[in-house]
Amino acid sequence: MSVENYIVLACVLFTLGAIGVLVRRNAIVVFMSIELMLNAANLAFVAFARMNGNLDGQVIAFFVMVVAAAEVVVGLAIIVTVYRSRRSASIDEPNLLKY
């Protein structure tokens, strides 16, 4: 199977993640969609590493995983705090700040 297919798959996953962020209401699901986007980028990095014949992309994928883990820590802390004070994880409900 050619490397190009993986790139196409990465683009599809990235787009799915982006659509998920835009249409889903639950903060946790939105957050999962963002993780999907990051992992789509990882797939692209690994596929490009194969295509370019060097290891940079594979190493970058590891760094991205670490960053994604740190992002989960911070993100869940914020989402759980908001959930505790509002009893809801919907991202449409916090709407005190507008206009």
Partner: peptide, 27 residues
């Protein structure tokens, strides 16, 4: 808290775009 949530969701969203851009330039 609302500001933190909005900043986080949108910030993480935009950094995912940045990362995919990096992947394409690396490619």
């Amino acid at each position: 808290q609302e500001a933190a949530l909005k900043y986080f969701i949108l910030g993480a969203f935009s950094s995912a775009f940045l990362l995919f851009g990096i992947a394409l330039l690396y490619g």
